[in-house]
Amino acid sequence: MNDLLRKLRPERLRELVLLLLILVVLIFFSTVIEHYLNARLFNRVSTSVAILGVLAIAQTLVILTRNIDLSVGSMVGFTAYFVGQQLSQNNEITPLVAILMAIGVGALMGSFNGFLVAVCRIPAIIVTLGTMALYRTLLVEYSDAQTVLTVNLPKWLLDLPRVNVLSYERLNLRLMVAGMFIVVILFQLILRNTSFGRKLYAVGSNPEAARNSGFPNQKIIFTAFVLCGSLAGLTGFMFLARFGNITVVAGSGLELKSVAAVVVGGVNIFGGSGSIFGAVLGAVMIDLLENSLIRWLQISEFWRDAMLGILILTSVATDSVIMKRFRNYRLKKLSQTNS
C-alpha cells in the first residue's frame, strides 16, 4: 500500500484521473449519441487536438515560470495569415521553409513579450493582454482586411491535414497528429531531462531560491516566452493548413482555450509544477467535449462555451481542494512509515 503510495506522485494521480474522466465522457456520449464512437470521431478530434495540443504546450512553458501568455491566439492568427499570404504569392516556397518561417515569426513576437516581461519587469498578464491587442492590430494592418483564400494556397498545404502516417482500418494517424506527438516527446524530454527544463520548474517553484542558486531567472523566463511564441507560430502553420481561409479574427479565442487546457491538465497556474503530458490531456478533454457537444442534438451547440467555463472552474477547484488533501494524506502516511 505504502509502496504504491510512494510511487503515486500527486501529479501522476492527477493525470490518471483526467484520463479516467476522458473515458467517462466518451462512454457518456456514446450512450446519448448514435454512432458516436467511430473512426471519424477519432480522426476529427485528433486533428483538432494537434492544434490545441501544441498551443497548450506553448502555454505550459510560460505558465511553469509563473507567467501567462494571453497573446498566443493573436500570434497564431498573425503567423497563419503571414505564412498563408507568402505562400499564396509564391507557390515555390517549400514546406520546410514555410514551417521555419512560421516558427520564426512566432519567435519574434514571443521575444517581444519576453523582453517586456523579463527585461522591463512588467507583469505578464498586462504585457500579453496588451500584445494580444497589438498583434491582432498588426494582422489587421498587414492584411488590409483581406482574407487568405484556400484557392491561392499550394496544393501540398491543403493536402497536409489529410496525409496519414499510419492507418488501421478507418483509424488514421494524421501527419499533423504525429507532428504533435513529436513536439510532445521533445518537450517532455526537455522539461524532464535537461538542465534548462529543470530551471524552468525551479524559477516557477521558487524564484528567490532560483536567484540564490545563481540562475539567470530573467533569461529563463525570456526563453520560455520565445519558445512559447515559436510553438504558437508552429500552431499558426497547422491552423493555416487545416482551415485554409484565414481572416483577421483567425485564432482569437485560442488564448483562453490554451489556458483552459493547461489548467484542466493539472499545470499549476502559479508555476512550478505540471507536465506536458497533462497539458495535452487537457487539450484532448476540451476538444472532445466541443466535438461531442456539437453532435449532441438535445442541447444547443452554443452551450459549449458555458460548459468550458465550468470545466475550468471545477478542475482548478478539484486541484486546490482534493489534490491538496491527497498530498497531505500521502505525506502523512509516508512519514509515518519513515519514522
Binding site: R198, A209, G272
Partner: peptide, 11 residues
C-alpha cells in the same frame, strides 16, 4: 531554507 517546493529532495 530556500528550497524549491515542487522539486524533489535530490534535485
Amino acid at each position: 531554507p530556500l528550497l524549491f517546493p515542487d522539486l524533489d529532495v535530490a534535485e
